[in-house]
Write a protein that binds this DNA or RNA. Structure first.
Length: 906
RNA sequence: GGGCGGUUAGCUCAGCUGGUUAGAGCGCCUGCCUUACAAGCAGGAGGUCCACGGUUCGAGCCCGUGACCGCCCACCA
């Protein structure tokens, strides 16, 4: 017998062991089946959103992974061939920043080291620190296939990136050009629109006078929020319809400070209602101005370097940081008497998502993806439900973004990442985009070729993962079997960054795939994890909860269960450790239930917990009931998980295991377990069946504790290597008995009523009392058949059937039977009182009854009104009308009973 | 400037296509160390479903207006 479990539940003592076991035994490794084989038909594929290689697990990850793990374990147990594919992302900017910081502490910089040495250094860093998050995932028991783990900079994945780039280029969907991009002067790279976060700030609108050339004393006053960019002004624009400036059309203005002549032009972009109606035009530093510049064929004058300092075009301001230049320019303008003043102005400034530096719109040569063709197909895929979002309103957000999409700037001036497969001919300036390093320029034959310095946006490569992680561009069995993936679970924060890009790129590159081009068929979007006060967790606020820490305190199972319980769709999760405390108690409950079962088993002996339920046990109501409940619950849990209602599933299981199995069933059968051995064996065999099934039911939610107990159930010799490989409980409608559930409900109500009376009358807890019950024949039968249960659970000494009210007899009226003693309880099925001499607090009892009566009378009046309403009777469904009639009769009965009881109080 | 979500018990949230008595967990109160579990058992209190108006036989749910929270998107200097 090795059913022994330690007396106290100590998650830390079991979790580490199983976490290691799952990995060591490769429990979750998947062999690719033959494409077209039977095994390949029932496949469930899930791609783990790859955490950054620099990452440390946070609660968001844990929520994400808990949800994925629940789904994948559930699918696996239901017989799907499940592949959960893990990997990490090289995270260009983040990783480069981290290593650069490290270098700085050594007095080094990447510039000093040179590109090659720096990249080697990053790899070194990755080898040393880059698997922290995987270790954490292993500890939390994520059931991924570790044998298939990838890294986005792996050789094959890098080849795939090159392949994609070249193909898109050849299709004309990638172009290179000089445009205004978002530039981060600290990261010294271009970033995409998405990587700019807008923040509303109270700032100022500065008004500056530009003298009109050749007309002394004449000025045009412009308004700007970024005065330093005036160094790059090449024109001033006014609206052609703006009469204030008609006289000046075609004149030249003198740009203050630099004394350059610039034209006054007319353009619709200038809004007469804003500021002074005159806007300075700086094509190299503003997206709108860039467009105006194109329309009017204006020069593009760049006045800033890549670090946000004024460059040589800025004359006397060269070398100054943009903000220092702003101050100086304003002072100088004031001295010249050209500064008119400022107005308060709220505008949204863009900051670098990564480092929060204010982004500078800057003219620069970059690579772009022409996105519209990709977006059109991506919109169609969702419109046609090839991809389904849950919650569905996210598809609205998705459409909104997709329909207003801009070309995607994919080049980054970084060193860490996939280098762009383009070579520049030093000789003829030809750009060669090819898969492998070219030997010479195909145009001029020159040998002096240099690879483009830029690397690709990290999201470019991660956008390809649904197919590249399965071996694309090779034609692999993995692609045949596992693409499209079944589901994506992720947070809304990367809906555009990642989800949208995967859809666009997947649909494009997998267009010919026999099972469909979309990268996933479903997307489940979850909310953010916040702290108990609903604050966003952040390092600066110091309210970050470390999943590993909290896990060590409460156990992984409890934390998982907390997250699952709180994962209601569309709401952020306010993570409160108090809840986790409660779910640790639940785990403890499970643990002790197991100990209870094992204790009885070891005492009685001669019975295996998994021998199956003896048929004769089905003669007992409690067994028919719990089995029926088990099957109902199994169906409900699977239904909830189908809808990604983790919260529903969790509470269904919680209520079943604790509220029904432990609180009622175990209590009901206790006497049998300690009774004669044959009886105990039979009862145990039945219990074992239910108990083992309940472990499997729970397993996706609480994998550790169920694994531990499950192995103990089988005394170390289980039918599978892990409970995770055992079948999930499925609804068997032959096991469902609504009759048993209804009967049990009556008994439960009776027992609760008696306990209730006892508590109210302050009967000494250990004293058994006789009870008197009035009930219909059928109910009397039920009660007699289950007398032992009632006596034991309600501390009843004996049961006597009596007549209190005799309402059954027409004309009978009151007084035909006994008076119901104060404190007695009535339901529609029975009336019960206890035989006990102590007086009850009559006033309190009258109050309770009056309150009850009032509620019922209100309900009765409502029912009466409705049933007297022709419209209701003719329009409402028969079922509703019947229900109301039946209820009205019940309410009438209850009202009579309560009135009688009130009368009886005197 | 657009768009989206929310407001239900002290707290965190459910409430399925409108249908009989609005639920759960935690917390709170009372009583119990009942031979698995005091991380437990038993019992209990607690809600004008944000406001106003409308549709309907019937509204927490649908429509309108407003208030208050929160989020996303946006090139107006």
């Amino acid at each position: 017998m090795s059913h022994e479990l330690p007396k106290t539940y100590d998650p830390s003592a079991i979790e580490q062991r199983w976490a290691e076991y799952w990995v060591a035994e490769k429990i979750f490794s998947v062999k690719t089946p033959e494409p077209g084989s039977e095994a390949s038909q029932k496949v469930f594929t899930l791609l783990l959103p790859p955490p950054n290689v620099t990452g440390r697990l946070h609660m968001g990850h844990m929520l994400n992974q808990t949800e994925m793990d629940i789904i994948i374990r559930w699918r696996r147990m239901r017989g799907f061939l499940t592949l959960w594919l893990p990997g990490t992302d090289h995270a260009g900017i983040a990783t480069q920043m981290m290593v650069e910081r490290q270098l700085a502490t050594e007095g080094l910089s990447r510039q000093k080291m040179g590109r090659e040495a720096f990249i080697e250094r990053v790899w070194e860093w990755k080898r040393q620190y880059g698997s922290a998050i995987q270790a954490q995932m292993k500890r939390l028991g994520a059931s991924v296939d570790w044998e298939r783990e990838y890294f986005t900079m792996d050789e094959d994945l890098s080849h795939a990136v090159t392949e994609v780039f070249v193909r898109l280029y050849e299709e004309g969907l990638i172009y290179r050009g000089k445009y205004i991009v978002n530039w981060c002067p600290r990261c010294m790279t271009a970033i995409s629109d998405l990587e700019v976060v807008h923040e509303e700030v109270a700032s100022r609108l500065y008004q500056v006078r530009y003298p009109v050339s050749g007309m002394p004393g004449e000025f045009v006053t412009i308004a700007t929020t970024r005065p330093e960019t005036m160094l790059g002004d090449v024109a001033v624009a006014v609206n052609p319809t703006d009469k204030r400036y008609t006289a000046l059309h075609g004149k030249m203005l003198l740009l203050p400070l630099l004394d350059r002549e610039i034209p006054l032009i007319t353009d619709d972009q200038a809004d007469p209602a804003f500021g002074t109606g005159a806007v300075k035009v700086t094509p190299a530093h503003d997206a709108n101005d860039f467009q105006i510049g194109l329309r009017h064929n204006l020069p593009q004058l760049n006045v800033m370097d890549d670090a946000g300092r004024i460059n040589e075009n800025g004359g006397p301001y060269a070398g100054l940081d943009r903000y220092a230049a702003r101050e100086k320019i304003l002072r100088d303008l004031e001295e010249l008497g050209l500064f008119v003043g400022t107005k308060d102005h709220v505008n949204a400034i863009g900051k670098c998502d990564r480092c929060k530096t204010v982004v500078e719109p800057r003219l620069s040569t970059q690579w772009f993806i022409k996105i519209q063709p990709l977006a059109d197909r991506a919109i169609e895929a969702v419109e046609k439900s090839e991809i389904v979002f849950t919650p569905e309103n996210y598809s609205k957000t998705y459409f909104e973004w997709m329909r207003n999409i801009h070309d995607w700037c994919i080049s980054r001036q970084l060193w860490w990442g996939h280098r762009i497969p383009a070579w520049h001919c030093r000789n003829c300036r030809e750009i060669i985009v090819v898969r492998t390093t070219p030997a010479s320029c195909p145009k001029c034959g020159g040998q002096n070729l240099e690879q483009d310095q830029d690397v690709l946006d990290t999201w470019f490569s991660s956008g390809l993962l649904p197919f590249t992680s399965l071996g694309w561009p090779q034609k692999t069995p993995d692609l045949d079997v596992f693409y499209p993936t079944s589901l994506l679970i992720t947070g809304f924060d990367i809906l555009f960054f990642w989800v949208a890009r995967m859809i666009m790129l997947g649909c494009h590159f997998m267009a010919d795939h026999p099972q469909g081009s979309v990268p996933f068929k479903e997307v489940y979007i979850h909310a953010l994890v916040r702290d108990a006060e609903r604050q966003k967790m952040s390092k600066t606020k110091g309210n970050v909860i470390d999943p590993i820490e909290i896990t060590e305190k409460y156990g992984t199972d409890a934390v998982r269960f907390t997250l699952a319980s709180m994962a209601s769709p569309g709401t952020d999760i306010a993570f409160n450790p108090d809840r986790t405390d409660g779910y640790r108690a639940f785990a403890n409950k499970i643990w002790n239930a197991a100990r209870f079962v094992f204790m009885n088993l070891d005492r009685v002996g001669g019975v295996s917990l998994t021998q199956g339920a003896p048929a004769e046990e089905m003669g007992r109501l409690e067994n028919r009931w719990i089995l029926s409940r088990f099957h109902h619950v199994s169906a409900e849990v699977s239904q909830s998980l189908t809808n990604y209602r983790f919260d529903e599933a969790a509470s269904t299981i919680y209520r079943f295991f604790w509220g029904e199995l432990c609180d009622w069933y175990l209590e009901i059968i206790k006497p049998r377990l300690s009774g004669p051995e044959a009886e105990a064996r039979s009862a145990l065999a039945f219990l074992g069946d239910i108990f083992e099934g309940s472990l499997r039911l729970l397993s996706p939610f609480m994998p550790f504790i169920t694994e531990e107990i499950w192995h103990a159930v089988y005394e170390g010799n289980p039918p599978q290597k892990s409970i995770a490989l055992a079948p999930y409980p499925e609804l068997d409608s032959r096991r469902v008995s609504n009759e048993a559930e209804e009967q049990m409900t009556v008994l439960q109500e009776l027992i609760v009523s008696i306990r209730n009376i006892r508590a109210e009358m302050k009967v000494e807890p250990k004293l058994r009392t006789p009870v008197r019950i009035e009930a219909a024949q059928q109910i009397q039968h039920l009660i007699l058949e289950n007398q032992g249960m009632i006596e034991r659970l309600a501390n009843v000494e004996s049961i006597e059937f009596v007549t209190f009210f005799a309402f059954d007899t027409p004309e009978a009226g009151f007084g035909q039977g006994l008076w119901l003693s104060p404190g007695g309880r009535s339901t529609t099925k029975f009336t019960v009182e206890i035989v006990y001499e102590q007086k009850i607090d009559v006033a309190a009892e009258r109050e309770r009854l009056s309150k009850e009566l009032k509620k019922l009378e209100t309900e009765h009046a409502n029912g009466e009104r409705q049933l007297g309403n022709e419209q209701f009777l003719s329009k409402a469904p028969a079922q509703v009308v019947d229900g109301l009639r039946k209820r009205k009769a019940e309410v009438e009965l209850l009202i009579k009973k309560i009135r009688a009881a009130l009368d009886g109080l005197g």
